[in-house]
Design a protein around this nucleic acid. Structure first.
Length: 399
RNA sequence: GGAGGGGUGGCAGAGCGGUCGAAUGCGGCGGUCUCGAAAACCGUUAUCCGUCUUAACGGCGGAUCGAGGGUUCAAAUCCCUCCCCCUCCGCCA
């Protein structure tokens, strides 16, 4: 959620920025709802203060108190309604994009920052399923469409990737984490995946638990409600987990191979920083992602995602797209966002350094997913980059 | 899965339905003392919301004692539901 008080004090700036995400109306609705709520507060406070007695009330006081009680009950109902309306409005307002974010609505409006590496010249590009060993037919029999077995050399290569990614991050001060992947509804709301992403999340109604689509949920939730010591910031975590996504709304999209499946593995970065350091940290996350892809020798490009294409929490997002020969184009393999205080505010993660508590900034980014495995296979036809051999990958992937 | 115990401030730990945002201890911060430090002593030490001002580490009012609901003029204290933690038994990786 945005900083309502700050928005109130400087509505013009906020409105203009939020308009770039197409949510100016939601912002206006929020200010109106806030106004209505604030108008009610003083009266409630005044009534409540009248209910406070020093000791046992006298009979005549008692009569008056009973009157106040009725008045207060009605007023509190009104306030609760106004508060709910305000909170609903607040939930609709996205994080304002950073000034360096390009205008635009869609993927096509992203600004390409650079291309690194050369796509290989392949006479007949083969799909990853033809190079590595993936059994999607049997997986379908077992689990349905969009599932796959990863077997043999391909699995060894995958493990090498995860471990190399984890080591890379560990060397750069990230604490490796094996997080829970089953979480409560509150965790989903707290991290902002509910209500917006609800359709994409697997639920276990029997136990009131949900399968996370990214370890971001567990990593962001790690310090929920805490006041951190400023001296320990930034806190950097590298989570490894299997992720589950229903891919609702993706019917008919990326149906070939393992590119878009319901279950995949990911090493994710998550950072809690001081606000004044978050933009430098964002660049740092991008550089970590790029350094890793360079070590894998994968051709890629970096894009700065357009304002209207950002999710609600992100103030800025870089996507890295690797070259996929079978598709003859660059496709997203990582993404890193600065969510500034938007997510932290909702999570109640603050820090203290000197004066009173302040809201931290949070950032998240992908280090590696199984998609990188697919890109490796397709670009190198089964050859394995040196960097991964040290991590137990076979010299060459065979089926 | 069965039986029992408990959730209070950074931590530990009191708390008769009103005078409790909460005793006490520890820890933290400031000070006295000291060449310095320790000890001792004094003071201070939660968060959030609204509002006023010279808008400030300030004043005033309100909220918060796991969460939510209820009883009452009044709830940390009573009742209900849920969540979490601990102990014992069973089962299992």
């Amino acid at each position: 959620m945005i900083d309502l008080r700050a928005a109130r004090n400087d509505p013009e700036t906020y409105r203009a920025a939020i308009a770039r995400k197409g949510a100016a109306d939601a912002f206006d609705a929020l200010l109106a709802a806030d106004e209505r709520w604030r108008a009610l507060v003083p009266r409630i406070d005044e009534l409540r203060s009248r209910t406070k007695t020093k000791g046992k009330p006298s009979p005549e006081q008692l009569a008056e108190l009973q009157g106040v009680k009725e008045e207060l009950r009605a007023a509190e109902e009104e306030l609760a309604a106004a508060e709910a309306a305000r909170d609903d409005a607040l939930a609709q307002v996205p994080n304002p994009p950073h000034e360096s974010v390009p205008d635009g609505e869609t993927e096509d409006d992203a600004v390409e920052l650079r291309r690194v590496g050369e796509p290989p010249e392949l006479a007949e590009p083969r799909e990853h399923t033809e190079i590595g060993r993936f059994d999607m037919e049997r997986a379908a029999r077992l689990s349905g469409s969009r599932f796959g077995y990863v077997i043999g050399d391909s699995a060894l290569l995958a493990f090498a990737l995860y471990r190399a990614a984890l080591d890379h991050l560990h060397r750069h001060g990230f604490a490796p984490v094996l997080p829970p992947v089953l979480v409560r509804e509150e965790a989903m709301y707290g991290t902002g995946f509910f209500p917006t992403e609800r359709a994409n999340i697997y639920a276990l109604p029997e136990d009131d638990l949900y399968l996370t689509g990214t370890s971001e949920v567990a990593l962001a939730g790690l310090h929920m409600g805490e006041i951190l010591d400023g001296a320990e910031l930034p806190l950097r975590y590298a989570g490894f987990s299997t992720n589950f996504r229903r891919e609702a709304g993706a019917a008919g999209k990326d149906t070939r191979g393992m590119f878009r499946v319901h279950q995949f593995n990911k090493v994710e970065m998550f950072v809690f920083t001081r606000p004044e350091e978050s933009w430098a940290e964002h660049e740092r996350l991008l550089e970590l992602e790029e350094a890793f892809l360079r070590s894998l020798e994968l051709p890629y490009r970096v894009v700065n995602v357009a304002a209207g294409d950002l999710g609600a929490p992100a103030a800025k997002k870089y996507d890295i797209e690797a070259w996929f020969p079978s598709q003859a184009r660059y496709r997203e393999v990582t993404s890193c966002s600065n969510t500034t205080d938007f997510q932290a505010r909702r999570l109640g993660v603050r820090y203290r350094e000197g004066g009173g508590p302040q809201t931290v900034h949070t950032l998240n980014g992908t280090m590696v997913t199984d998609r990188a495995l697919l890109a490796l296979l397709e670009n190198f036809g089964g050859e394995v980059p040196d960097a991964l051999r040290a991590y137990g990958a076979p010299e060459r992937v065979t089926r």
